[in-house]
Design a protein around this nucleic acid. Structure first.
Length: 281
DNA sequence: AAACTAGTCAACCGCATCCTC
DNA sequence: TGAGGATGCGGTTGACTAGTT
């Protein structure tokens, strides 16, 4: 059942890239664009694995890479996103323009995790949503296996979630409570995000199964707009928002006012649809 | 000055997921 | 619908550098 290796490793350069290789790769991509990584090295005349070329481009050569130290604001954002997403570096990086997943991962492992550990050591009893130390090789306390009833889940392996439709609570069918700890009168439950299949957002996000109370706390505390009352009272379209009145699409969209008011909302976009620019449009 | 240690980060690896046929 | 290739992702490694003894 062996997988075929991504490339024949014989005769290929490995290790650090030379300036010459960088130039060749950059010139090739500037002319031909990204993609076709497997064939790229041959076409560009590089003795490198396609994966290696891709990584080099994404992490170093891309023109929009931001150089220099991570700012305090960026660090705070990383911490917040990590609290919610766990080690899903590409999602986190997606909310930090010019930063790469590799850079953020390295930064976390070398700087933030130590800072956090030091914080933990000095404060024994901490608030759940304070900067919670999460040694990388230990289970995230915010995370739990889905098989465990009382556990919260963010699996470390990422799965992609590119499309989530948030339906209008008024128009969607009664939620199916498959899980006994979901109380129908639970505020977050009654206003919960749902997908096309009426699954809670928490579970439709691929394997990102975030405990709903945690998500509720996060949304309330980090993004106050998303208190359950706001959700109940209609972040649904139909006001002055982007939802076109005649649309037969029942998805919930957010009004321009709301989006402007919530300047820090953008990080949430990555949870819902990393690849779309719906926030900007 | 040399040896050792710790920190940083680019690059590699294997696996998961997506895409195409 | 399934197989296989392509791509993306997170974890890990190891080379390099700076600091310390």
């Amino acid at each position: 059942m062996g997988r075929s290796p991504c490339c024949a490793k014989e005769g290929l350069n490995r290790g650090a890239w030379t300036a010459m290789e960088d130039r060749m790769l950059k010139e090739y991509i500037e002319i031909h664009g990204e993609g076709q990584w497997r064939n790229l090295p041959k076409r560009a005349g590089l003795k490198r694995c396609g994966k290696s070329c891709r990584l080099r481009w994404l992490n170093y050569l891309r023109p929009d890479i931001k150089r220099g130290n991570i700012t305090h604001d960026e660090e705070e954002l990383i911490i917040r996103l990590h609290k919610l997403l766990g080690n899903r570096w590409s999602l986190i990086a997606g909310r930090l323009p010019g930063r790469t997943d590799n850079e953020i991962k390295n930064y976390w492992n070398t700087k933030i995790s130590k800072k956090i550990q030091a914080t933990e050591a000095s404060t024994s009893g901490q608030n759940r949503l304070s900067v919670t130390p999460q040694p990388l090789n230990q289970p995230n306390p915010m995370v739990k296996p889905s098989s465990s009833e009382n556990s919260i889940v963010i699996r470390t392996k990422a799965r992609r979630c590119t499309k989530v439709v948030i339906t209008n609570p008024a128009e969607r069918p009664e939620p199916q409570f498959s899980d006994h700890h979901h109380q129908p009168d639970d505020p977050i439950k009654s206003s919960e995000f749902v997908s096309k299949e009426n699954e809670p957002l928490c579970s439709i996000m691929g394997d990102l199964e975030v405990d709903e109370s945690f998500l509720a706390d996060f949304l309330d505390i980090e993004f106050g707009m998303f208190s359950s009352s706001n959700l109940k009272n209609g972040i649904t379209g139909g006001n002055n928002g982007t939802n076109s009145p005649g649309s037969d699409d029942h998805s919930v969209l957010y009004s321009d006012d709301m989006l402007h008011e919530l300047s820090d909302f953008s990080p949430m976009a990555c949870l819902i649809d990393t690849e779309s620019d719906w926030l900007q449009n």
